[in-house]
Amino acid sequence: MADFLIKPPRRTVKEIPLAPILDLLTVVIFFLILSTSFEEVRQNTIPQSQLIKPDSADTAKPEIPLNPKVLLAESQNSYKIVVTWTGDHPGSLSKNVAKDNQDYNKNLYQMTQELLDQYIQKFPNEKTIQIGFESKISFQNVITIYDAVYSKLKDIVLLSNVDSDAILSSR
């Protein structure tokens, strides 16, 4: 009868122990930060030269290598991009691009891509290409052409300025 007079035990609400969780998160954050890099600079790697092993079907009839090249020459107001190759059906493509005052000449980048697209349509299985520049071409333009070529073909070999000058002057 006197049960209702007894005060019922007070319900205690369990508190989530936030402090150890936060400690743990602190440690995790350290590792997250250490594994993150906030980049201001980027890289372009000139890879090692590679030999492409021909398929067994091709060994019967060895083809003349294409030796494709992308070359850049500079005149007073413009650049000349040349894509040239040898092989059974030698040929070349070229385009002139006007100079601009921008650091990164986007036209140069786009025109190089367009020329390479035409080349790749002709030779879709060719994966390696050489890039060469006139001696006076600036490092910025080397990078611009490299970016454009690398977006289409991954195996890039640098051609010497002496060879590039010789090829360009003979054209």
Partner: peptide, 18 residues
């Protein structure tokens, strides 16, 4: 990298990190 303050680096659209 130790880049001198007076050097102007070329711009690139490469996504590769250093």
């Amino acid at each position: 990298l130790q880049i001198p303050s007076d050097i102007k680096l070329p711009a690139t659209i490469s996504d590769d990190t250093i």
